[in-house]
Simulated assay, not measured.
Amino acid sequence: MDKIPMTVQGHKALSAEYDHRTQNERRRIIDAISEARAHGDLSENAEYSAAKEQQSLNEGRIQELESMLALADIIDVSKLSGSKVKFGATVTFLDEDTEEEKTYQVVGDPEADASAGRISISSPIARAMIGKEEGDSFEVAAPGGARSYEIVKIEYI
């Protein structure tokens, strides 16, 4: 399998979620199953079914987190520099149609969250930016047609 690039902060967040799910959620769900079992007939016990469903979802997410953490290629963005867009760059760019300025950090897939200013390195907009410098323009195919952007600033923070 390929390594999954991620920032130090992204790795810490996934590790914290893993710890929470294995140490807290798992215990809480086991307690809920035990309590539901005590109510008698399991075939018509909605609480038991709901707790088992929660357990299944939690264990699935734990396995997913274990896999991501095992394949993590942790990149310390503060040690990166350069004038071109690459993983970890915080890029400010201008929408050439609307004159709207946006700033995003290019991160790994597991930690991407556009509403928090982090886009995945495999997203179309990040792929279009990779290798570009300040002042360069790039186009991204969007559902409503191609959009043009100009890179205003590149930082590694």
Results as ranks from 00 to 15, higher is better:
residue 15 S to I: 01
residue 16 A to S: 08
residue 17 E to V: 01
residue 18 Y to G: 00
residue 18 Y to C: 03
residue 19 D to M: 10
residue 19 D to A: 15
residue 20 H to M: 10
residue 21 R to W: 06
residue 22 T to W: 02
residue 23 Q to Y: 05
residue 23 Q to C: 05
residue 24 N to Y: 09
residue 24 N to V: 13
residue 25 E to I: 07
residue 27 R to P: 01
residue 27 R to F: 07
residue 28 R to P: 02
residue 28 R to G: 02
residue 29 I to R: 08
residue 29 I to A: 07
residue 29 I to G: 08
residue 30 I to E: 15
residue 31 D to F: 09
residue 31 D to G: 09
residue 32 A to S: 13
residue 32 A to P: 04
residue 33 I to D: 10
residue 33 I to K: 08
residue 34 S to H: 09
residue 34 S to W: 03
residue 35 E to N: 15
residue 36 A to R: 11
residue 36 A to T: 13
residue 37 R to C: 07
residue 39 H to W: 12
residue 39 H to D: 13
residue 40 G to T: 09
residue 42 L to C: 03
residue 43 S to K: 14
residue 45 N to M: 03
residue 45 N to H: 06
residue 45 N to Y: 03
residue 46 A to V: 12
residue 47 E to W: 08
residue 48 Y to C: 06
residue 48 Y to H: 11
residue 48 Y to G: 03
residue 48 Y to T: 04
residue 49 S to P: 04
residue 49 S to Q: 15
residue 49 S to N: 14
residue 49 S to H: 15
residue 49 S to C: 05
residue 50 A to Q: 09
residue 51 A to Q: 02
residue 52 K to L: 14
residue 53 E to D: 12
residue 54 Q to M: 03
residue 54 Q to A: 05
residue 57 L to Q: 08
residue 58 N to D: 10
residue 58 N to A: 11
residue 59 E to A: 07
residue 59 E to Q: 12
residue 60 G to A: 04
residue 61 R to G: 02
residue 61 R to I: 05
residue 62 I to D: 01
residue 62 I to M: 07
residue 63 Q to C: 01
residue 63 Q to Y: 07
residue 63 Q to T: 11
residue 63 Q to N: 11
residue 64 E to Q: 14
residue 65 L to M: 09
residue 66 E to P: 04
residue 66 E to K: 12
residue 67 S to G: 02
residue 68 M to P: 00
residue 69 L to F: 00
residue 72 A to Q: 02
residue 72 A to I: 03
residue 73 D to N: 11
residue 74 I to L: 00
